[in-house]
Amino acid sequence: MSAVMDLRQLQLFRRIVAEGSFSRAAAALGIAQPALSRQVRALEEELGLRLLHRNGRGVIPTEEGRRFAEAVSPVLDDLDRIREEAMAAQGVARGRLRVAMPPSVAAALGPALLRHLRAEMPGVELNLREGFTGTIHEWLTRGEVDIAVLNPMRRSAAVKIEPLYDAHLFLVHRAGDPQVAPLLTPEGEIALADVAHLPLLLPGRHHGVRREIEAAFSAARLVAAKIEDVDTLSGVKQMVAEGLGCTLFAWDAVSLEIEAGRLSAARVCAPVLLHGFVLATSPEASPAARAVVRFLREEVRRRIGDGRLRGSLN
Score class of each variant (00 low, 15 high):
R98D: 09
V159K: 05
S156Q: 09
L198W: 07
A86F: 06
E242T: 10
V92T: 10
P182G: 03
R211C: 09
V149D: 01
D194W: 00
I82P: 00
E63W: 05
A175H: 12
F295C: 10
A250I: 07
P74D: 10
R96D: 10
L248R: 03
R301K: 15
I31T: 10
K226A: 11
Q11H: 11
S286A: 13
Q39T: 02
A148S: 08
F295K: 09
H206G: 10
M87K: 09
F295T: 06
P102H: 06
V72Q: 02
G48N: 05
S255T: 09
G276C: 04
G245C: 09
V268R: 06
A88I: 07
V293H: 04
A280Y: 01
V124H: 00
R115S: 14
S2V: 04
E70W: 02
R41A: 13
I161W: 07
R67F: 06
L198T: 05
E125Q: 15
V254C: 09
I161E: 13
A225H: 12
H197F: 04
D231H: 08
A253L: 05
G276D: 06
R57D: 12
A119F: 11
L76K: 08
R8Y: 04
V17Q: 01
L29G: 01
A27S: 14
A107P: 00
P186M: 11
I190G: 01
N151A: 09
G58W: 00
A89L: 12
G48K: 03
V75M: 12
A157D: 13
L126C: 05
R81A: 14
G243R: 08
S264F: 01
A107D: 05
G91S: 07
G305A: 15
I161H: 13
R118G: 12
